[in-house]
Amino acid sequence: MEVPILKQGAFLIATFQAALSDADLNQLRMGLVQQVVKFRSRAVIVDVTAMDVMDSFASRTLREIAHMIRLRGAETVIVGIQPEVAFAMVQLGLTLEGVATALDLEEGLAYLNEKFKTTN
């Protein structure tokens, strides 16, 4: 299953369509980092609205994505975590520490727009 990566100005938006396998997640990780380099993006938004389960592997992959992208000098925002998924995640001790989060795509974009306005 391919994860579409959309380019919107200085940002990349990756939307998780449905339940992803580990292989899909690994592929996404590589793909995102390559595209950040290619487009010299300033930030990546990962939209997980469609994910009904976020287990330790998925959560770890998201953290790794954020980490690698930070090493490229860009920022990552995870958006669209469902309330029920968030509850299950904290029970598992998965808190995505150090990674920015926002309610949905709109909020994620607002957060990044503001951030890059104030630092410029």
Partner: peptide, 12 residues
């Protein structure tokens, strides 16, 4: 602590 963490996952 969990409530605080879960809220943050929703961006609050």
């Amino acid at each position: 602590v969990q409530t605080v963490e879960a809220s943050r996952l929703l961006g609050a």
